[in-house]
Design a protein around this nucleic acid. Structure first.
Lengths: 219, 219, 219, 219
DNA sequence: TATGAATGAGGCTTCATTCAT
DNA sequence: TATGAATGAAGCCTCATTCAT
């Protein structure tokens, strides 16, 4: 009842918190029903407010999707920054770290990664372009690491770096399709296992001890 | 009631051709707009008939999705059968072949693979279960190949075969997300490159010449 | 039950009739509540069909308004053509005829004239421009008649022809605001009285017998 | 409760000024979008306050419209009083004066006249009746002037005074539909030109010099 | 006074499906 | 088979109004 005296920005604070709740509700709903299959009503229900009230926080349903996808890119940026900052690691080491962090993130944020990959296409032109532009940057980061590793003789130069980038993404992102936290389907070291797979494939370090060995478990 | 006697292509034949056209129209439409975002009207438009007429071929919109997904599994079954029949290959060789064939298929059928992975969840319970059951079989096939390779000392036993299965799927299936036939983004030997990545990872055959080399280009 | 055998276009016929009913229902509803104040539901109710069914005949609510306004211009065009064709009349005679016909039309179509003048502004840009363009033509027709009368010494040259045009419109169109067919507020010769007012004003023919007299009652 | 003693502009004064701003904001908004098409939000935006705050000045949206229309009648009353007081003028002279004043007013208050004629119907029963009652008085004033002119032999007795009233209104009010202050579409003497048209019509004073001449430019 | 969140009704439009022809 | 009108539910969004702060 008494206004909050400890801060002179009481409203923005509360508003921002509510904003987060809104996006999180949308996340749960879109994850379950898909963006197109979910209704604004569903999101409002999840929040326990009326459909009309939801429009205090958004202008259109698409806003919910866009905010969600933007947040994914903000999170990804954190990972990239961390990896880029580790100049104590060589290219292979940084690739391994990148894969570990990405898998960790995906495992902890299955729903939004799922939405990210299933529903970007539902964005209208301008916003889709905005997201794709950030995605491009993200890809370039990994492609450059691979090129660097190839130049250093640490990575197979026989495969185009762009293709390797996508193969790595495949392994790291695909996790959202099969890992389920409640089951026992994945051990806690999933990020590590994925990094290992990415570096040495099915065949494993048996025949390539030195290069891979040195980068495992070091981050 | 009486079959057409003037031709050896009785009704069922023509009917089946029309059915394929219907599913293919749905494929194009669902690929572009997603299952939930596409309307029956859109599919009818794609076929050049009226919405009401489309209901001569289907009972519900969901039928279109289900038929599409069933066809994917029929196609996949062909691949699995081929790989299983190759008892001249060892486990690693068969894994490589499996990856090649899968990537080939995905590259040639981007839309339906995309729909398969984005929209299965839209099926009603019973049909979703039917699809998931076939998917499970599919996964088991690959997992068993990996287990076999591990037993034969050809594959890294340090990673759980189930996880390796999913990592391989990631690489092989992810193709549908980035490969675009019109661009120059992928060389003709994409299936081969993916198989190579799956077997030896980023590090490549440089440090593990024997095992990988022997399986390349052998199918 | 039996298809109509007398014509090979049975559907278009029925469709066109229904189209007219739709526009007429919209006319009644918009007249009573105004375009913005009327709902698509109201129009559907007036037609005795469901709201959704109405969308077989229109794409948007605005279509109803636009069709209505277009019809007004089609009707007006008929009047203009008739007046233009009467080369047996001099300019003053044609002005008188024009006023009579316009007042007659307005009296018989109060609702759509009312809608025409109250709701054109609700049209979206492109359509509003289309209507305004036709209105401009309409005005020009009258302005030219006046100019002609002025040149012939039959009309007061002291007032700009454009302004006279608008004063005449005022008298002729304003009818829609006060004439009500059910009351006894207007005698049957309202068109004639308005024409007389337009030609000689309040003062009347008392002081200007010749010029006005000759044009009254001659059409 | 206690009035502000430091100034001779107590609360009511300030309140009244704000009230006027509110009505003026509503005027601009209703003029542009129509009463039904405008939202309370639009009016609040125009005022630069929030929608909720606007409700400190009004109880319902309809209040805004009603106040606006009441003000129109207050203004009109001023004109009528002025004309009625001019007993130095004969009936024709007073009609001319009335037309001039009305046109002047309309030209200076296009938006509210426009709203007055387009949106009275949106008022609820009781208030609409209140407005119509005042309008009736207004009309009667003019009708009586005409009857007087007819009795005095100054006006054409061939047309019913009620109809002439409406014809005059048509000319004088219609101005709001075509006059636009920014264009060069109207000379400064528009009120005079309209009065002249009303008195002598299209034909003009050419054939009726005396009666009309004597009333021009005399007010 | 002013704010802004919330309400609940209603508005425009789309949609999957049905059915008489 | 094909049509196209009709249905009824639902979807996205806006709105007038209220109220605690």
């Amino acid at each position: 009842m008494a206004p909050d005296r400890r801060t002179n920005h009481p409203r923005p604070q509360r508003h921002r918190r509510r904003d987060r709740e809104v996006v999180e509700a949308a996340e749960r709903v879109f994850y379950e029903r898909g963006y197109s299959g979910a209704s604004v009503q569903d999101v409002a229900d999840e929040l326990g407010i009326l459909k009309g009230s939801l429009y205090h926080y958004i202008d259109t349903k698409e806003d919910l999707l866009f905010r969600l996808l933007e947040e994914v890119h903000e999170d990804v940026q954190v990972i990239i920054s961390e990896v880029a900052a580790r100049d104590d690691l060589d290219a292979i080491g940084r690739i391994a770290l990148y894969v570990r962090r990405t898998v960790e993130y995906n495992v902890q944020h299955l729903p939004r990664i799922s939405i990210y990959y299933h529903d970007v296409q539902r964005l209208t032109e301008a916003r889709r372009a905005a997201i794709f532009s950030r995605r491009k940057e993200h890809e370039s980061f990994l492609t450059e690491l691979i090129t660097e590793a190839q130049r250093a003789g640490q990575a197979d130069p026989a495969i185009d770096a762009g293709i390797v980038t996508n193969c790595i993404f495949g392994t790291a992102i695909w996790v959202y399709r099969w890992y389920r936290p409640d089951g026992k389907s994945a051990p806690v070291d999933l990020p590590d296992l994925c990094a290992r797979f990415v570096l040495s494939g099915v065949v494993g370090p048996a025949a390539s001890l030195t290069s891979v060995q040195s980068t495992n478990r070091l981050v």
